[in-house]
Design a protein around this nucleic acid. Structure first.
Length: 553
RNA sequence: GGCCCCAUCGUCUAGCCUGGUCCAGGACACCUCCCUUUCAAGGAGGACACAUGGGUUCGAAUCCCAUUGGGGUCACCA
C-alpha cells in the first residue's frame, strides 16, 4: 500500500489520438515531480468518450512514454511498467465504481436527473447568446420534478443525464503555479456528471479516480484551470481531500496557433497545390477523397493517408506527435530536455540536462505562467549538439537502429562497411538521426539511374577553366589506376592532382567529382563519398557523366 | 461577450517573492567576418527586450493601480 505521505502524480490522457508534445511535457513533469520526491506516477487512460476512444491509441501512448524514458509506477501494464493495486486504470472499466459514488450523490440530493435533450440545451444556449448573457444551467425545472415523476420518466426509458447541483458561493482555487483565484458565485453551473450513455463525464471520473488512486498532486495543462472549480465542489460533496494543483502553461506553434494534427493537412495541401498535383499517387488515397480534401480546407485525412501522400511527394510534415519527432530522428533525451525548457527552467544559465537532473530539480515554483511557442529550430540545435557530442560507436548504433525502423530498404542496400563509412562521414554534420538517410539517397540509387540535370550541377561541370569536365576526365585516368580505394588512399592521389593541375585548389576538382558520383553539389566529404561508393561504382558513374555531355569538352 | 489567468530580446527564458550589484544575463534564430573540397559544423564579433500610463520610494524590470495586449474557459470532449 502507498504510504499516506507519498507524493502521487498522474498522467491521464484521453486515447483519442497520438501523444503530442504538450502531453509529453505534462507527462514528463508529472514523472519528474514524483520521481524527485520518491513518489509514484500513475498512468490512467481517460476513455469515457465512447465516440473518440480507440484501443490502439493507449498502446501508442505507452510506447511513446517509454521511448521518452518516462516510466509509470501504476497503470496499464506495458514492458515492465504499470500494474498496481488501484486498477483498473482504464476508466471505461471502472463504471461500477463511478455508479457507486453517483448513487451516493443522488441519495444525498446533491445530484439529480435532467431530461433536456442536447438539442434543447443548444437552443437554450443560443437564446442566452442572443440576449447577450452567459448561459448557466441552474436546473430549476429539473430539480422541481417530483421524485416519482423522475422515476416514471426513467422507467419509460427517457434519456437522462445526471447533473451535480453546485452549491452557492464563490470557489477558491489554490494553484501552485498560478497562485490563488476566486471563481465568483454562479460561474460554475450544474454540470453533467453522468452522460446519457451511462458513462461518467471527465469531471466526475477524474475526481473519483484521483481520490481512489491516492493522487496527491494534479499537474495538468492550464486549459483545465477553470475545471478545477467543478472538481473542488465535487470533492467537497463526496468528502474527498483536495489534491495540490499545478496548472502548466500551454505550448503553441510559433505563430501562436494551437498545435494540432490539422497542421499536417495544412502543410501538405499547400505543398501539393504548389507542386500542381491534381491526382493522388496509387496506393495512397482514392481520387474522390483526394479531390474533396484538396478542395476543403477543413477536411482531415487519416494520419496514414497524410503520411503516404507526404512520402510520395517528399513533403516534410511538421512534427506534432512524439512519434513524429522519433521518425524525424530526434533523440528522446533531447526532446525531454527541450520540452522541459518550455514552461520551466532550472534557473541561471543552465540549459542542457537529462531527465535525472530534471527529476531532482523540478519544482512547481519554477514553472512559468506564460504560454510557450514551440521553437523547432532550437530543438534542432539541441539535437545537433547532442549528436555531435556522442561517441562514434553510439552514433553508428543509434543511426542503425533508426535506419532499421524507418529506412529498411536503404539499410539493405548498404554493406556494413559502407554504412559505417557513411556514419563516419556524416556524424559531425548530422542534426538528426534521419539526416544521413535523407541526404544520401544517391548512394542507393543505381549507377545507371543517376541524373545531372540541375543548373548547379551543369555549372560545376561546364564552368571553370579548365572546366569541371576537363578535370573529371583527367581524374578518371588517375582513379582507374588507384588500388588503395580508401579515404586516405584517395586523398593521396586526388590532392596531388589538385596541386598539379588546379593550383592546389581542391574545390575545383572535388566539386566535379562530387557532381559526377552523386548527381548533386552536396554530399559527404569527397574522399568519403568515393570510398563509400567503391571503385567500380564510382568509376561507372564518372564514365556515365562524361558520356553525357562530351560536347562541352 | 461573462469569468479566470498572464505580460522581459523574433523565440525559450534568467532576474521579480526578499526594490539599488541590471544602461537587464544565457540559449536558439538573425547579421558580419574567419576557417573551409560541397553541405554542415566550428571560431570571433554584432544587432535585439523590461507593453503603456500613473503612483509608492532617495531609488522600480522588480511593489500598487489603470489601460492595452495575449491566453484559457464557458459541451452529454477530455
Amino acid at each position: 500500500m502507498t504510504p499516506s505521505n507519498t507524493v502521487v502524480t498522474r498522467f491521464a490522457p484521453s486515447p483519442s489520438g497520438h501523444l503530442h508534445v504538450g502531453g509529453a511535457r505534462t507527462a514528463l513533469f508529472c514523472w519528474a515531480y514524483a520521481r524527485g520526491r520518491s513518489g509514484k506516477l500513475v498512468l490512467r487512460i481517460e476513455d469515457t468518450d465512447q465516440k473518440r476512444s480507440s484501443d490502439s491509441a493507449s498502446v501508442g501512448f505507452a510506447r511513446d512514454l517509454k521511448w521518452l524514458g518516462i516510466a509509470w509506477d501504476e497503470g496499464p501494464e506495458f514492458e515492465g511498467c504499470g500494474g498496481g493495486p488501484h486498477g483498473p486504470y482504464f476508466q471505461s472499466e471502472r463504471l461500477e465504481t463511478y455508479q457507486r459514488y453517483l448513487d451516493q450523490l443522488i441519495a444525498s440530493g446533491v445530484a439529480y436527473y435532467a431530461f433536456e435533450s442536447p438539442q434543447e440545451l443548444t437552443a437554450m444556449r443560443e437564446a442566452a447568446k442572443a440576449q447577450n448573457r452567459p448561459f448557466r444551467y441552474t436546473g430549476e425545472v429539473a430539480r422541481a420534478l417530483p421524485p416519482d415523476r423522475v422515476r416514471a420518466m426513467l422507467a419509460e426509458g427517457r434519456p437522462a443525464v445526471v447533473r451535480f447541483h453546485t452549491p452557492p458561493g464563490a470557489i477558491t482555487i489554490v494553484d501552485e503555479v498560478l497562485g490563488t483565484a476566486l471563481i465568483p458565485d454562479g460561474e460554475t453551473d450544474d454540470f453533467v456528471i453522468r452522460k446519457a450513455d451511462g458513462y461518467p463525464t471527465y469531471h466526475f471520473a477524474v475526481v473519483v479516480d484521483d481520490e481512489l488512486m491516492g493522487v496527491t498532486h494534479v499537474l495538468r495543462a492550464q486549459e483545465h484551470f477553470n475545471n478545477t472549480a467543478k472538481h473542488i465542489v465535487l470533492q467537497d460533496a463526496l468528502g474527498f481531500r483536495r489534491p495540490t494543483y499545478g496548472h502548466l502553461p500551454l505550448i503553441f506553434n510559433p505563430d501562436g496557433s494551437k498545435m494540432s494534427k490539422r497542421d499536417k493537412d495544412k502543410v501538405l495541401r499547400k505543398a501539393l497545390v504548389e507542386k500542381g498535383v491534381t491526382e493522388p499517387p496509387t496506393a495512397t488515397v482514392t481520387r474522390q477523397r483526394f479531390t474533396a480534401w484538396m478542395a476543403d480546407k477543413t477536411m482531415q485525412l487519416e494520419l496514414e493517408e497524410t503520411m503516404a501522400l507526404a512520402e510520395a511527394y517528399q513533403v516534410a510534415l511538421p512534427e506534432i506527435n512524439v512519434d513524429d519527432f522519433r521518425r524525424s530522428g530526434y533523440l528522446p533525451e533531447v526532446l525531454c530536455n527541450f520540452l522541459s525548457l518550455n514552461g520551466w527552467s532550472p534557473g541561471g544559465d543552465l540549459e542542457t540536462f537529462d531527465n535525472e537532473f530534471l527529476a531532482s530539480h523540478f519544482d512547481l515554483d519554477r514553472v512559468v505562467k506564460t504560454p510557450a511557442k514551440f521553437d523547432r529550430a532550437k530543438l534542432l540545435a539541441f539535437n545537433l549538439h547532442a549528436i555531435a557530442s556522442m561517441p562514434r560507436e553510439e552514433f553508428v548504433r543509434r543511426t542503425a537502429a533508426h535506419g532499421a525502423a524507418f529506412h529498411p530498404s536503404f539499410m539493405e542496400r548498404l554493406s556494413s562497411e559502407q554504412f559505417s563509412g557513411l556514419c563516419n562521414a556524416s556524424h559531425e554534420r548530422s542534426k538528426t538521426l534521419d539526416d544521413l538517410f535523407r541526404t544520401n539517397t544517391f548512394i542507393t540509387t543505381a549507377d545507371d539511374l543517376l541524373v545531372w540535370d540541375s543548373k548547379a550541377t551543369r555549372k560545376v561541370l561546364e564552368g571553370g577553366s579548365p572546366s569541371g569536365f576537363h578535370h573529371l576526365k583527367a581524374l578518371r585516368e588517375v582513379l582507374v589506376t588507384t588500388d588503395d580505394w580508401t579515404v586516405a588512399g584517395l586523398e593521396g592521389v586526388i590532392t596531388p592532382y589538385a596541386v598539379r593541375s588546379a593550383e592546389g585548389n581542391l574545390g575545383a576538382v572535388a566539386q566535379p567529382l562530387r557532381v559526377a558520383v552523386s548527381g548533386s553539389t552536396v554530399s559527404p566529404p569527397i574522399f568519403d563519398t568515393l570510398a563509400i561508393l567503391g571503385k567500380a561504382s564510382a568509376l561507372r558513374r564518372i564514365d556515365r557523366c562524361l558520356a553525357h555531355s562530351p560536347a562541352t569538352l
